[in-house]
Design a protein around this nucleic acid. Sequence first.
DNA 1: CTTGACTTGCGAAGAGTTATCATTTACTGT
DNA 2: ACAGTAAATGATAACTCTTCGCAAGTCAAG
Lengths: 133, 133
Amino acid sequence: MQLRMTNQREMILRELKKSKGHLTADELYERVKKFMPRISLATVYRNLEILSDVNMINKLEISGRQKRFDSELEDHDHIYCVECHRIENLDIGANQVELPVEDAHGYTITGRRLEVTGVCPRCQKKIAKSKKK
Amino acid sequence: MQLRMTNQREMILRELKKSKGHLTADELYERVKKFMPRISLATVYRNLEILSDVNMINKLEISGRQKRFDSELEDHDHIYCVECHRIENLDIGANQVELPVEDAHGYTITGRRLEVTGVCPRCQKKIAKSKKK
DNA sequence: CTTGACTTGCGAAGAGTTATCATTTACTGT
DNA sequence: ACAGTAAATGATAACTCTTCGCAAGTCAAG
Ligand SMILES: [Mn+2]
Ligand SMILES: [Mn+2]
Ligand SMILES: [Zn+2]
Ligand SMILES: [Zn+2]
């Protein structure tokens, strides 16, 4: 499989990098459409899948919600807001989490994912406000 | 909100406990149907949601896949097979994982989820076999 | 050029889950 | 026992996110 860097592919990758965030396919679609109004959502999905297959981006499959994509390739973990579902990098080093996994039922370990959940500052304010009423 | 222990609710809870596993709504539906052929899938979904709201069971929302439900209430983590998506308990104590989360971008931490991914013994064999060909 | 592999845009289809609503069930108080 | 009422159910439609199928388009190699 050889991967051509088509305009669409390149644009999707560029916009994801530019955002520095954790975007859904749909969010990325909206951004890319500004430059390529005729691009299709399926193309965005397709290319995100391909780009993550060849490890040019990371696919985040977090907690039963929409997939998000991350152009940051270094191993790191995430925190996400249970209210608004915003996702941010967790700046504790990923490797500070020690994992003694001898007893893994005979599994061959391929990775580990740590998710911290919480309420982001923005949502804390929102909640405080609605409680005052 | 007061929660009645209806026959359906009780049966769903009983079957989940009996299985000792991590079942999807659909898998549980199939099991419960053996005893209550007329039960609706919506009822299973509804009750699993309710039971987890009142903390009688645990909802596992793992990695962009189907939700699974767990009757084990004690805090523990999971390992899951990236091939067949089987889920098992990770028998390292959940609390052996130390989490230094000062820098959490101002988030109020509500929880954390640790997922280890791997290939289960069954799937290892399957892969070994298919490579031999 | 022509070929052929890869890619695109579009719409349809799929999977999983939730919502709607008429009907049924089961408490509560009399 | 009975009526009144709140909650739960079953059937099905709707919904969200994602993938599929396919005709048409692109592009590099010969
Ligand atoms: Mn990240
Ligand atoms: Mn478990
Ligand atoms: Zn938030
Ligand atoms: Zn497996």
